[in-house]
Amino acid sequence: MSAPFRSAAEDAPWARALLALAAITIGVVILALPLAAVFTEALRRGWGVLWAALAEEDTLAAIRLTLIVAAITVPINTIGGLAACWAIAKHDFPGKRLLVVLVELPFSVSPVISGLVFVLIFGAQGWLGPWLQARDVQIIFALPGLVLATIFVTFPFVARTVLPLMQEQGREEEEAAATLGASGWQIFRRVTLPNIRWALLSGILLCNARAMGEFGAVSVVSGHVRGMTNTMPLHVEILYNEYQFAGAFAVAALLALLGLVTLAAKTLLERRGRHA
């Protein structure tokens, strides 16, 4: 009796089953279970307690601050990321390779260091510290510092999502548009942008998720002033350290929910992008 035909690239049935099992196990234990735990813990004492925990003044301030930081960071990184992609993919200039490396730098540097750099520059003992203090400008331990650190950490998301697509698409369509009489802005708005729109939206969502969730860099520049410079991730830590588990898990659940919504939106966009 002959064995059933198996194509060359196909693994043995037992190998396939083992690999699938391993992947599912890791997915459940490492990824899904902790997430489920956060929501379970948050809801353990019921919706009422959860709601009360979220409605606390400092928590509301943290949520507000997080949204403000994201609202400033995401547009800046969208425009900056697009500009970097546009420059790298559509033009040749000296230092282009350096720019490509710089775009990825925030991914490879520890967020704590990203935060420390800003303290070093703008902090009271930093390079520009005395100059800023003389003019009563507060950057570190204030909103500008939080925004700067978040911009730095989340810069690559838009750029890295869009750049490969732009490079793959080349310059021909832009050149064709130019010969047809389109201005630079018309070319960008009517040819380049529509070609990258799904990747761009997906990059923006990832950037937003990270901007709201960033802990390390923000922790260094924040100063942890409750109700003033505490973002949601920092607030979770403070509540947890003070044994306020109900509050900690309530904020954590909200943060996780924001992340999940982002992920769902991104998945949906990618599906649309494939059909467009």
Binding site: E172, E173, A176, T179, L180, G181, S183
Partner: peptide, 17 residues
């Protein structure tokens, strides 16, 4: 290029996809 009024057919056509 955009002020030259020259029609160009590109090698791979470069149609707006």
């Amino acid at each position: 290029a955009r002020e030259r009024g020259i029609g160009v057919v590109f090698q791979h056509y470069a149609l707006f996809r």
